[in-house]
Design a binder for these strands. Structure first.
Lengths: 186, 186
DNA sequence: TTTGGCATGTAATCCGTTACATGATTAG
DNA sequence: CTAATCATGTAACGGATTACATGCCAAA
């Protein structure tokens, strides 16, 4: 029994307005990318299969723009989305590569773990800055009353976990540099 | 270019002592499972391919226990592990299903999002309790001086992000119940 | 005119889970 | 005796990324 959550990401996005594969990708990039990434290699095939199941339908475009293929969600599609929303969310399989490296870092050079943490910190500092941009975008993009609070909750989730991660970086740097100092003294 | 990080999880674990596939699985479950999960379907094939590459080697077992196949890490394996440890950690592809549901929850029934958050909270409350058990186990399991601080850093990471997530659950419940109250009043 | 963005897609490949299959040993 | 745990594996499948391929259009 598999998930196929890309389908629901697409259905959800199409509740806003009809979009093409390309437009979907850029919508995801601007809004949910920080917690939900999609690639073209998934998107286009999924559009086909959703269309085959009549959960979405091709929108005939104004003649001028033939190369763009937009899809709209159907009533059946909306129903399927709503069904999925109420289903208990599956937990992600947790895989945090930096922790695997840290866990075995006793075998690495003295400053390897510290450098990993540094890079990790840089990523999350950038990430927090990007979240501000995302929030601004969501606020402006948002048209339908009532969806903004939900959107902002996802941003807040990002901020909270990012800050916790940065706090951990502080702690890790403390532990690791104390360790390095001890090793040097000997 | 793919990751194949299971290989390094195995190499890392085998620096502690020779282990069989089964033992590796239970070692992972007791120690790193909360941030690094492995299944048999990965483990056994990886053991074969690592052995083929001479990064690990079969350990002839005391005759009595023929059915257990233990592997030890080779010098080449250790070298490969150390090389990998210094390589910059790749960021995980972020996919947080509950946020995808929350993002589109405007289309769901009034209390659907709230129930998702409730379930999420229960998970993380349990998770924090399990972390205490994991920490106790790591402290007792730990033999080699010097690896414990690294291990405890991973536990701390788990705790910090779990607490941040629970704080988010509080916030989300506040937002969502206020919303529900407003909807009811009308 | 050439660069970059718009736009759609496929092929290869692998990562990883799930389900299945099998059997020995040990504790109650 | 029987249930749980030890123990090893394979098959099928799907999810997802990456790399590749193609071509239009607009702006500099």
């Amino acid at each position: 029994m598999r998930a196929n959550r890309t389908r629901y990401a697409v259905l959800g996005a199409l509740t806003r307005r009809p979009m093409s594969g390309y437009e979907l990708k850029s919508f995801f990039e601007k809004s949910v990318d920080f917690f939900w990434h999609e690639s073209y290699g998934q998107l286009y095939p999924v559009l086909r299969s959703l269309a085959r199941e009549r959960l979405i339908a091709e929108v005939p475009d104004a003649a001028a723009d033939r190369r763009r293929l937009r899809f709209k969600i159907t009533a059946a599609g909306k129903k399927e989305l709503v069904r999925w929303l109420a289903e208990p969310a599956r937990r992600e399989v947790s895989r945090v590569e930096i922790l695997l490296k840290i866990f075995f870092s006793r075998h690495a050079g003295r400053d390897v773990a510290q450098q990993q943490v540094e890079a990790y910190r840089r990523f999350y500092v950038d990430f927090l800055a990007q979240l501000d941009a995302t929030e601004a975008l969501l606020r402006s993009e948002h048209a339908e009353a009532d969806e903004l609070p939900f959107w902002l909750l996802t941003v807040s989730y990002g901020r909270r976990t990012a800050r916790a991660t940065l706090d951990w970086c502080d702690e890790a740097e403390g532990v690791l540099s104390a360790r390095a100092a001890r090793a040097k003294r000997r």
